[in-house]
Design a binder for these strands. Structure first.
Length: 598
RNA sequence: GGCCCCGUAGUUCAAUGGAUAGAAUAGGACUUUCCUAAAGUUUAGAUGCAGGUUCGAUUCCUGCCGGGGCUACCA
């Protein structure tokens, strides 16, 4: 929806009112881009107005078209094709639209900061026993991008994650490290902390299975063997000591967690994502427990005879859900209630929370939001589960047991080296000072990866083929970067310091290709709004591609610097500036850095 | 069994109920004395099946077929 479309919608409503005595419903007025094979810029679908006119679509279009040309200065001409009214918009209007957008410079497309409600976006929230993998990359890029998009749309955004730092799984790594670790540390081995701890988690599993097999071979059944394996008992013992606050256990726990956090931190830094605040499960699960007990006292929850506590959601079409075990220990939901409410207390003006979590947890979040609602939080109805699909490999889901997990650090490294290799093969390195090369490889390699993961509708599961690697040509991040670089190069060669000096005279006539390019670039503000409303970065990614594709086609046969008509030259430089700015802003919202040379 | 999501060119992705369903890639044919060829031009190729709603359906409704997920006192 462009500005011109809102103007046209009003004019069309006027036309109907004057011609037929009543206005159509706003949503019946549909304005879209005119298909390139027809003359005109914007197209109004006239079918909905035939009810008002009582005439054929052609005749109705004819009458509205004539009215518009006569009464709206922006419209110079019209044509009817079937039930479609194709309108030609004046050169004057396009020149002004171009000038207005260029004058906004880097603010084009953005709304005033913090002009809309405060939103919290949670993303990442990994398990501290496993290094980050491809699925986390989608999660992180998505959460980061949605945060940036919400900011661009005017929201005050707080980026957070919940760190799952407590429970039996952590104790397993701790046991294994105590048994087999020989006091290794990330410093002593030179290994990333998350990888080191992940290795001991695997070591636990291996030792556990071995013990289970041994017990079974002595004649016991599998069930018994699984619950009696000494290493598991040792892990449980650690958990009890942890909960009792045993200082030795707590020290080891915080030491090993520190290793993991440091490892994650370096990966986050590499990915270019960040957080404003971190929440730890070890801090929130007790809050959750007390809130559940309070809810019980307030009559929101119910207690069974075995003393377990439940919430009954059958009134909203869901089931009963356990909130506290009969032994009084917390479940996942307990902690999430505690975390959510703690956040509302931490940020009193928080309008809603957005949870970036895989789609297998849709039910969980439905339940969580219902519970928050029952507890009297009006924000609950605006909370949103940003539910995304899995990243699948050609052979199916990633499975750590089968060793098909695509490690995040490995993939980032691979993207960097592929970018380096391609740059060198294409002979691009002469333009790039050696000191800037690594930085460029990151921009291009990570740009390819982020764009690849974000251009797909988040809700859909997507395919990644490790053997095929991610492209750098075609509909890719580097394609967009490359055209940005060319556009920037033109502006540099033209010696344009301040783009707001590029004022296109109102008499300049832009051809079809140019007007289409302009219209595409001008849709950035609306697309950002839509993307914010639907929590969908793919809309922004697709627009960046559309602009780039149009730009690249146009660039091919429209000289800019060599254009002799000085007014037209200014208009083209302005277009060049607007497109490069729109692309840079859009890609920035995806977390993709744009190089100035490549 | 119940509930939810998804089926579009060989492949990976698009398409507020609108015109002849768009791209990319892989295949065929081309373009470089010209602002960065990681580019551009051109050719060929798809809505799972069957109904319904209406001026018009990839989109909305029903059934079927196929794929995935959820349905734990796991996280």
């Amino acid at each position: 929806m462009l500005k011109i479309d809102s103007i046209l919608a009003l004019s069309v409503a006027d036309a109907c009112n004057n011609l037929y005595g009543s206005k159509p419903e706003p949503k019946q007025i549909s304005v879209q881009s005119t298909r390139s094979e027809f003359e005109g810029d914007r197209t109004v679908v006239v079918f909905p107005f035939t009810r008002l006119s009582g005439k054929s679509p052609e005749l109705t279009g004819e009458q509205i078209g004539m009215y518009l040309v006569k009464n709206d200065d922006n419209i110079t001409n019209f044509q009817i094709v079937k039930g479609f009214l194709n309108l030609s918009v004046s050169d004057n209007y396009w020149a002004k639209a171009l000038n207005d957008a260029v004058a906004e410079k880097e603010c084009f497309g953005l709304q005033a900061a913090k002009s809309k409600p405060q939103v919290m976006v949670e993303y990442s929230s990994p398990n501290t026993n496993k290094p980050l993998h491809l699925g986390h990359l989608r999660n992180n890029f998505l959460g980061y991008s949605v945060s940036e998009i919400l900011k661009a749309a005017g929201h005050d955004v707080i980026k957070v994650q919940i760190i799952n730092d407590r429970g039996i799984h952590i104790c397993k790594s701790m046991v294994a490290w105590k048994l087999f670790g020989n006091n290794e540390t990330p410093t002593s081995t030179g290994e990333k902390g998350d990888k080191l701890v992940g290795r001991y988690y695997v070591a636990f599993d291996k030792a556990y299975k071995k013990e289970v097999a041994e017990i079974i071979s002595t004649g016991k059944d599998e069930e018994t063997a699984k619950s009696e394996a000494p290493i598991l008992l040792a892990a449980r013992d650690l958990l009890h000591k942890w909960e009792a606050g045993d200082s030795e256990v707590r020290t080891l726990w915080s030491t090993m967690n520190r290793w993991v956090y440091d490892g994650f931190e370096s990966t986050y830094k590499e990915m270019g994502v960040d957080f404003d605040k971190l929440y730890y499960e070890s801090d929130t699960y007790l809050i959750g427990k007390s809130l559940v007990k309070k809810g019980l006292a307030d009559g929101v929850f119910t207690q069974r005879e075995d003393s377990s506590i439940w919430v009954d959601l059958s009134d909203v079409g869901l089931d009963e859900k356990l909130l506290l075990r009969k032994d009084g220990t917390a479940v996942y939901m307990t902690q999430d209630i505690g975390t959510a409410i703690l956040r509302f207390e931490d940020y009193p003006s928080l309008d809603r929370q957005v949870y970036t979590v895989g789609n297998e947890q849709e039910y969980h979040f439905k339940v969580l939001f219902e519970i928050l609602s029952k507890l009297g939080f009006p924000q609950a109805s605006r909370c949103h589960h940003l539910s995304y699909g899995m990243v699948e490999l050609p052979e199916g889901k990633m499975k750590s047991r089968e060793g098909t997990v695509v490690d995040a650090d490995d993939l980032l490294l691979e993207m960097r080296t592929s970018a380096a290799q391609l740059a060198s093969e294409a002979g691009k390195l002469d333009n790039i000072p050696p000191s800037e090369r690594d930085n460029l490889y990151k921009k291009v390699g990570y740009g390819a990866l982020k764009y690849f993961l974000l251009k797909v509708d988040p809700r859909k599961s997507m395919m990644f083929d490790p053997a095929g690697s991610i492209d750098f040509i075609g509909n890719t991040g580097p394609y967009i970067q490359f055209n940005y670089v060319r556009a920037r190069s033109v502006l540099r060669n033209a010696g344009i310091e301040d783009v707001s000096t590029l004022v296109t005279p109102s008499t300049v006539h832009l051809d079809n290709t140019e007007r289409n390019l302009l219209m595409t670039a001008l849709s950035l503000p609306t697309i950002i709004e839509e993307a914010a409303r639907s929590y969908d970065p793919s809309l922004v990614a697709n627009l960046c591609y559309d602009i780039t594709k149009s730009y690249s086609r146009w660039y091919q046969d429209h000289p800019i610097l060599k254009e002799e008509d000085s007014d037209l030259r200014i208009a083209r430089l302005a277009l060049c500036s607007l497109c490069s700015q729109a692309i840079k802003t859009g890609m920035g919202l995806l977390g993709v850095d744009m190089p100035e040379n490549m």
